[in-house]
Amino acid sequence: MAAVQVRGRRIGSHIILSVWSILVLIPLWIMVINSFKSKLAIYRSPFGLPDQWTLDGYLSVFSRSSFPRYFFNSIAITTISIAGIIILASLAAYAIARWKSRVSTAVFLFFLAGMMIPIRIGSINLLMILRNLGLLDQLIGLLPIYIAMGMPIGVFVLTEFMRTVPPELTQSAYIDGAGDFRIFWQIVLPLTRPAMATVAIFNLVVLWNDLWFPLIFIRSESQRTLMLGVTRLFGQYQTDWTLILSTLTVATVPIVLLYVLMAKQFIAGLTAGAVKG
């Protein structure tokens, strides 16, 4: 009797989870599969495999528009920002973890406050700051903002992690005469790699997908990021479904592919801010 009940419940669970999985996968399937069809075929049979595969959408994404440029811009600003976040946040985190004082606690809390407050609220003043710095409509203008945005989560995750580094490790290095910076560079940083991955992944998804700041700061074609480009293309070619779907696919695939390859780290990274905060 009980066994039957348990089995029944298990089947129920599978039904619920499968239905949701289908709801997740169908839109993505439609996006990818229709990007290989002609416009007419999309209308005729939106769900099946294409009778005739076509790369027209992809070819025009990469030739007709400045898409390669947007792509490059996004890769550049995302990687440089992440590098900046990791360098600055790990330096700060090291100091906070090692220096027991009221100042370091205050600095830590100051950084943490940023996790609750969306930086967008400061957009009006950021516009003025960038304008005064002559960085409006420049891709590079996003860099300091992205670094500032990434600091709270970076400092939080890295500090928590560095606190778990056993003090014996650093103490013996001290006795051997290593300076603070050498201990940081040669002992602590290599140990912190998993936490850095968490920070990098979190910011990768947030920054790669960011639309807000490019939208309000950037106008020029040559400075646009991928997401801003997607927005503009969508407005321009509303009815060219093949092109639109190819664009969306291209914008999505890099991150989703990375995610599928490293699902565990991604889930850890993207929920990191929440779980302990």
């Binding site: 600055l88 700060a92 940023g114 003043n125 950021l126």
Partner: peptide, 29 residues
């Protein structure tokens, strides 16, 4: 000045100038 300040400073500067100050200034604006 404890040496630790120098480790914190770069991150603090960017974070303050591009997050904390804009936030505060926007309230003021």
């Amino acid at each position: 000045i404890p040496v630790w300040i120098w480790y914190m400073l770069p991150g603090l500067l960017v974070y303050t100038a591009f997050m904390a100050v804009p936030l505060f200034k926007s309230l003021q604006l």
